[in-house]
Write a protein that binds this DNA or RNA. Structure first.
Lengths: 297, 297
DNA sequence: AATATAAATCGATTTTACTGAACAAATGAC
DNA sequence: GTCATTTGTTCAGTAAAATCGATTTATATT
């Protein structure tokens, strides 16, 4: 079972053979020798695992598989051929009008507000709408077309969703102002912990990275389902927590909590932008994605 | 302006960069080195003629063009990836039920009847429908979905039609039984001619090949719009004509006309099978096309 | 300033795509 | 039937490409 991939060139050569009905004429239209066409046909049939032609006299006769292949491949092939023109032809959409965004809660609360505020300030006609939810809800909104773009924490499993790296969220340990600025892995076991609920993306990353480093912490003494609540609990002296840097920034600047560095550890998780797969992309969405990745653009 | 084509590999590498957000990580997922990814991105951007990334710090930042490309290419790419499975997975449709064929008149009258009769004899549950018309009408029927498959004489110009070589129609000169079996090019000018109307595919090929050989014939003394009428006129002694071999076979066997060979000339034209582009192919149509090309299958 | 990270660049190497000639099968001419 | 012609395949050799490893440049982090 040869698992190699076929190439567009092989498809084009195959199409030429179907259209001309002969290997030699296909070779002429493709400006190559007939040996190359023979080879391309054999490799294509091998990688697809089907018989495309049978010898009939001194000509090749296309099987029904060949006709199926031609019918199935011609559409996608034509779309790819038109790519360059479409890319160069369609003008960038202006930052004007309504756009619907969806994001999981941490992103919607701590990352997007500042980015969107900046964007709206520079493009007054832009009208973004933002709905927050968990990752599953966000994916569903995007897949259904209710949102043009979504932002989530974990990678998606859905096939109807097109995921793309957006930015990196860095997590930080936080403690009460009295906590030391740096801790070693072994110290963590002596502190009480304020954790997110099980299933939270933040908690999953945190525990995964700790396990990788061979660090164990006691069960949480307090569990809340919101990182803002975690911050306030830590400020009130409930113990340590691990939250997104963005969620901790304001309270840390105000002196309510202290950012704690864990020696040798850097908790990071990728954030993903998602959109509906297959559908014609909303032109404004493309520019928005580019703009949201770089606030200065 | 580099007019070269991009490859599926380049698209896949580009998608990996978009998903991972970094060249190095994309290189890892593609199982190649970082240098190869850099090169693939540069070549892709060159062939598309757009900027895909701009340097932002030590990372690459996707432009809106990159987001557009990802959105535009992912659909067709996924369809092509699924090709092998679809080809191997879908069982061949049985020769059962209704199929609508359309064909230009000569094909519908002299070629398809025998082929279809043979096919129906071997597959009693098959219910073909055949409508004849000129090439434009046939194309329109296929494009509109009124016919599953069509057969025409000339190559098509429509973009919504998928043309494929079907078989080769060979033309022959015919004359009254008193005519010699072989003529030279110079002899043709001394005969009266029974021609098809201007615009007929058969007439166009005939005149084109004559012109190529430097042979001139006098204006037709009789013009009819049907090759059967031509045959009967020739049998009645009206002169010579050029018709499809299939149209002349019966009358020649009966001794009503004589097949005349023109020294060194072989009039041939390709016949095309056509179907609707882009649409999901009717499964039965694929088998039918394969079967109609080879009566013995 | 020193260190670490990311990407681009460049020469070397492996892999792939293609060529050209030899060969086999089938057709058509005589 | 025999012979030349046409067509596709095969295979060794070659030209082109994709990829690698090392180096360079730019940018963060400390």
């Amino acid at each position: 079972m040869s698992r190699r991939h076929f190439t567009l060139r092989q498809l084009d050569i195959f199409a030429a053979v179907m259209q001309t009905g002969q290997v030699r004429r296909a070779a002429a239209t493709c400006h190559i020798g007939q040996a190359a066409v023979s080879q391309a046909l054999r490799e294509l049939a091998d990688t697809l695992g089907v018989t495309l032609f049978v010898s009939r006299g001194r000509l090749l006769e296309p099987t029904s598989n060949a006709h199926r292949l031609l019918a199935l491949a011609s559409g996608p092939r034509a779309e790819l051929s038109a790519l360059a023109e479409r890319l160069r032809g369609e003008p960038d959409a202006a930052f004007v009008g309504p756009v619907h965004l969806a994001a999981s809660s941490t992103i919607a609360r701590y990352l997007l507000p500042a980015l969107l505020a900046d964007l709206v300030a520079r493009h007054p006609a832009l009208r973004p709408t933002l709905s927050s939810g968990n990752s599953v809800e966000t994916e569903a909104r995007v897949a259904a077309g209710a949102a043009d773009i979504g932002f989530i924490e974990g990678p998606t499993t859905r096939a109807d969703i097109l995921a793309c790296h957006w930015r990196t969220d860095r997590l930080t340990l936080i403690g009460p102002p009295s906590a030391p600025a740096t801790l070693a892995g072994a110290d963590l076991a002596h502190w009480p912990w304020v954790a997110r609920e099980a299933g939270s993306g933040t908690r999953t990353v945190f525990e995964h990275d700790l396990a990788l480093a061979g660090i164990t912490i006691p069960p949480a003494t307090l569990v809340v389902d919101d990182s803002g609540a975690q911050v306030r609990a830590v400020a009130a002296g409930a113990g340590l927590a691990c939250v997104s840097r963005a969620a901790a920034a304001a309270a840390a600047a105000a002196g309510d909590i202290r950012l704690v560095t864990l020696a040798g550890q850097d908790f990071a998780r990728p954030l993903w932008s998602i959109r509906r797969a297959g559908a014609d992309p909303e032109p404004l969405a493309n520019r928005l994605l580019a703009a949201l990745a770089s606030p200065s653009a």
